[in-house]
Amino acid sequence: MKLTPRELDCLHWASYGKTSWEIGRILGIAERTANFHLSNTCAKLAVCNRMAAITAAIKLGLLPDPNLPGEHFDKMESLQTLPGPNDHEPGLTPARAAGSAPRATSQHPPRRRKGGTSR
């Protein structure tokens, strides 16, 4: 079985704990595209999730073992493409830009309590 270079890129960043959204930002692709490549990787390696795919890829020698010194490289300069908290995209909250899950917010004003009194 042969993985494409993009599948290996996505798997590499997933092995560093990056989310699909972060992988997309680093590689300049959509989050959905990162999920697509990781899904193809899982199918090719006959596993059901990305952690199992990472483990299988390391065992098969497709990815370097992160625990062995000198075998892996760090692309910290690529992380500089991630937006900071003050330079987010329209519709993208700073929290989401930092990688955390978006909060559910209500578009409606708070409900009034019965009886007409407020606290």
Rank of each mutant, 00 (worst) to 15 (best):
H108T: 09
D87L: 03
G99T: 01
G99H: 12
R112G: 14
S78E: 13
R113C: 09
K114N: 10
A98T: 00
Q107I: 08
A97H: 10
A101D: 05
R96N: 00
H108K: 14
A95K: 08
M76I: 08
D87K: 07
S118A: 15
A97D: 03
P85V: 09
G115I: 10
P109W: 04
K114M: 04
P90Q: 08
N86K: 06
Q107P: 04
G99P: 03
R112M: 11
K114W: 12
H72A: 09
T93F: 02
S118P: 11
G99N: 07
P85N: 07
N86H: 12
K114S: 13
G91L: 14
S100K: 15
K75W: 02
A97N: 02
M76V: 09
L82G: 01
H72R: 05
Q107T: 08
A97C: 06
T81L: 15
G91I: 10
R111I: 02
K114P: 15
R112C: 10
A101Q: 09
A101K: 06
P69T: 14
D74Q: 12
G91H: 08
K114C: 07
S100H: 11
K75H: 09
T117P: 10
N86G: 05
D74R: 06
G84W: 02
P69M: 10
P83V: 06
G70T: 10
F73V: 10
T105Q: 11
E89D: 13
G91C: 14
R96Y: 08
D74E: 13
S106G: 05
R103D: 00
K114I: 12
R103N: 02
G91V: 05
H108S: 13
